[in-house]
């Protein structure tokens, strides 16, 4: 009699618990289905509904993680980080913790808060639980450097994973193609137009040099003819304007060239790179 009663109670408990989990699970599946069809606004609603009705908090990690992914996909990076952080707090094991943390890093990369991304990479690296996942950490560190426009450091990070890593080669190549802004300016101080030649703008270089020579001639000529005030005014208003213009131009050409080089690599990463992206 007692045994029968225990069996019945056990069965009852099992039915109640199983049924309780059943409907929460189907809500989770439903939300996942919407997420899969890329309707992120609706997916967030359904994950929030799941969180609201999931009294056992069985899906607290998954739902928050998925909400973070939805916000990230929608470009709402602040919200994404908020939800990834909640999922991180509710992680049940090291893998889940690592997943949440890397998502926070990836979102920081996309948000262009690369300093924070690098800081989080350092934190993960120091954590002994993840000593076997240094490749993953270096991978995202490399991406952080790419978005911080520090291609040489990015190449070094990818090289730690594999010296022949595809991204290492790309980052190193990009760094090689970039020009030095300081050098472009300095050589323009010495010879107006030289910075423009260095950055490949030959016509502009020729014009800069010509204007400087003409203005220089006028200035010197004024002094030679004892028209000192003329010399000062022409030197100040005309020659100096072209001289400074050449330096400014060289700087702008170098900056634009570097943006062009970086954009070319970023376009490759966006459209042709097959690996995991932030």
């Amino acid at each position: 009699m007692k045994i029968r009663m225990i069996i019945i109670l056990f069965f009852l408990f099992f039915v109640v618990t199983a049924k309780g989990q059943d409907y929460v699970q189907s809500q989770f599946d439903y939300a996942n289905n919407i997420f899969g069809s890329q309707h992120y606004f609706d997916a967030i609603t359904e994950y929030k509904r799941l969180l609201f009705f999931d009294l056992t908090k069985a899906f607290i990690y998954e739902a928050n993680f998925k909400i973070g992914e939805c916000y990230k996909a929608g470009g709402k990076f602040d919200d994404a980080i908020e939800y990834f952080s909640i999922s991180e707090l509710n992680a049940r094991n090291d893998d889940e913790f690592f997943e949440s943390k890397t998502q926070i890093i990836r979102t920081n990369i996309l948000r262009r808060t690369t300093d924070r991304a690098l800081q989080l990479c350092d934190e993960l690296e120091k954590d002994e639980r993840f000593s076997s996942r240094t490749d993953d950490i270096n991978y995202w560190r490399g991406w952080s450097y790419i978005f911080a426009d520090e291609w040489k450091r990015a190449a070094n990070s990818f090289a730690k994973i594999n010296f022949n890593h595809e991204l290492k080669k790309l980052a190193a190549q990009t760094d090689k193609e970039k020009v030095s802004v300081t050098f472009a300016k300095v050589i323009s101080y010495i010879l107006p137009g030289a910075g423009a030649i260095y950055t490949g703008n030959y016509l502009s270089a020729l014009l800069s040099l010509s204007w400087n020579m003409l203005a220089g001639y006028w200035t010197v000529n004024s002094f030679v003819q004892d028209r000192v005030f003329d010399g000062f005014v022409v030197g100040e208003l005309v020659w100096l304007r072209f001289y400074r213009g050449a330096i400014y131009n060289a700087e702008q050409f170098a900056i634009n060239k570097n943006i062009e080089v970086a954009n070319k690599s970023l376009k490759f990463l966006q459209n042709e790179y097959k690996g995991i992206k932030p």
Partner: peptide, 10 residues
């Protein structure tokens, strides 16, 4: 009980 705890319509 089973009916009570049947899947609620969220």
């Amino acid at each position: 009980s089973a009916s009570l705890f049947a899947q609620p319509d969220f």
